[in-house]
Amino acid sequence: MALASSRRSGDLLPYLLRHLSTASLFPVSPHAFDPDIRRMAKSHRFSEIEDLLESRKINLPADASARELQLASSIVSYASSGMLHHALRTLDDLPRLGSTRTLLSLNALLFACNHSKTLFRRVPDLFSDLSRRHSLSPDKVSYGILIKSHCLARNASRALSILKEMDGKGIEITAVSYTTIIDSLYKENKPEEAERLWNEMRDNGVSPDPAAYNVRIMHRAKNGNPAEVLALMEEMKSAALEPDTFTYNYLMTCYCRHGYLDDAKRVYNELQEKGCQAECIYS
């Protein structure tokens, strides 16, 4: 399997869908892609990648949906290796190969492009062209990937306009999409706009998840003081959400930045006792 060589094709669907439905804010795990293909891509051994992935098109499952799943993994591997032409050719060839062609394949391609250093800027055009060419109506996952591409290009204002487009089409705007833009606004040094969008998200009935809170906490850890970080953590707990390892790492970093090394060590030791991986970075 191109997404995880040790996984059977039947195990890949929930794995792929989980990444496609949640990938926005944090980098995807390096284990999401076949390590052999990643090594070949780094060495620019593209002909070997093609030979390997094309060989996987020979013995495909009999079921059309299962075929799409296996071929979608090849699409991801091609796109994540920077081989966009091959990824597009595979998407085009799905019916010829006896496969269905659904949003799973389109989203897989767009998702992989976002995780390519050279292709994420192509996502907006691909989103428009491919959905029209293949008569596929983008869903909330597709739009989430589109939003991420604009944020990667440091164009949060364009991403904001996508929210309006989604609202006009009646497409659900998820916490992931809101969080992606909030994170980008902070990175573009627009904290007031980030807070405005945070309030808009809550006003629209979308409940922040731990990742959303961690974006705000990360910003306060970098630009504020430990008291502000702790206040956000209390707000998080009052929303019945438990701070995670990321949260405590940001708190420790903030303690270190302000010279409160004993407090940082205390948090570090508490995390170690709980078996969590802690990283206290002084900066």
Rank of each mutant, 00 (worst) to 15 (best):
Gly10Asp: 05
Leu20Tyr: 03
Thr22Trp: 05
Ser24Cys: 14
Ser29Tyr: 03
Pro30Arg: 02
His31Lys: 15
Arg39Glu: 14
Met40Ala: 10
Met40Phe: 07
Ala41Tyr: 00
Leu52Gln: 07
Ile58Ser: 08
Ala62Ser: 13
Ala66Pro: 07
Leu69Val: 07
Leu69Asp: 07
Leu84Cys: 11
His86Thr: 02
Asp92Gln: 14
Leu94Ala: 10
Ala108Phe: 07
Ala108Met: 12
Cys113Val: 02
Phe120Asn: 08
Arg122Cys: 12
Val123His: 06
Arg132Asn: 13
Arg133Ala: 15
His134Asp: 14
Asp139Phe: 06
Lys140Met: 09
Ser142Trp: 03
Tyr143Trp: 00
Lys148Trp: 06
His150Thr: 04
His150Ala: 07
Cys151Asn: 09
Leu160Thr: 02
Thr174Val: 00
Ala175Trp: 02
Ala175Lys: 07
Val176Gln: 09
Ser177Gly: 08
Ile181Cys: 04
Asp183Met: 09
Asp183Thr: 02
Glu192Met: 10
Glu200Gln: 15
Val215Leu: 01
Ile217Ala: 11
Ala221Cys: 08
Glu228Met: 13
Leu232Ile: 00
Glu235Ile: 00
Glu235Met: 13
Ala239Phe: 09
Glu242Gly: 10
Phe246Leu: 15
Tyr248His: 10
Tyr250Phe: 04
Arg257Leu: 06
His258Cys: 13
Gly259His: 01
Gln272Val: 06
Gly275Met: 03
Gln277Ile: 07
Cys280Asp: 13
Tyr282Trp: 13
